[in-house]
């Protein structure tokens, strides 16, 4: 699933700045995948017996991941703000 508006438009080799932006977009796309992986980690925790983690640990872990993802997303979203590939070509 590649963004066709980008890949069809330009040449193979890009300026450093454009290249950076592309990788930022890649990172932005991968954030949910990372989030899903991290949030599925609790499936590995034991849910029986004494060794199961305490509620506070679980809360701290889940919310920690959540905040981590949001911060990453925030950091990525800022430099992408002026991305021309998001031009409103769908608008009348």
């Amino acid at each position: 699933m590649t963004d066709v508006t980008e890949t069809t438009r330009t040449s193979v080799f890009l300026e450093r700045q454009t290249y950076r932006r592309r990788r930022l977009v890649d990172a932005a796309r991968l954030v949910p995948v990372l989030g899903l992986l991290l949030w599925l980690v609790p499936l590995l925790w034991p849910s029986e017996g004494d060794s199961r983690p305490a509620m506070s640990t679980a809360i701290l872990y889940l919310f920690g991941v959540w905040i981590f993802l949001v911060v990453i997303k925030f950091l990525i979203a800022r430099p992408l703000r002026s991305d021309p590939s998001d031009a409103q070509d769908g608008q009348e």
């Binding site: 599925l40 499936l43 034991p46 199961r52 305490a54 509620m55 506070s56 640990t57 809360i59």
Partner: peptide, 21 residues
């Protein structure tokens, strides 16, 4: 509060994997 949470009746990880996902 965190201590209280751990001491309460829902104080331990008790989620079923299937339902979680």
């Amino acid at each position: 509060t965190l201590e209280k949470i751990d001491d309460s009746e829902i104080g331990a990880w008790q989620v079923e994997g299937g339902r979680w996902a």
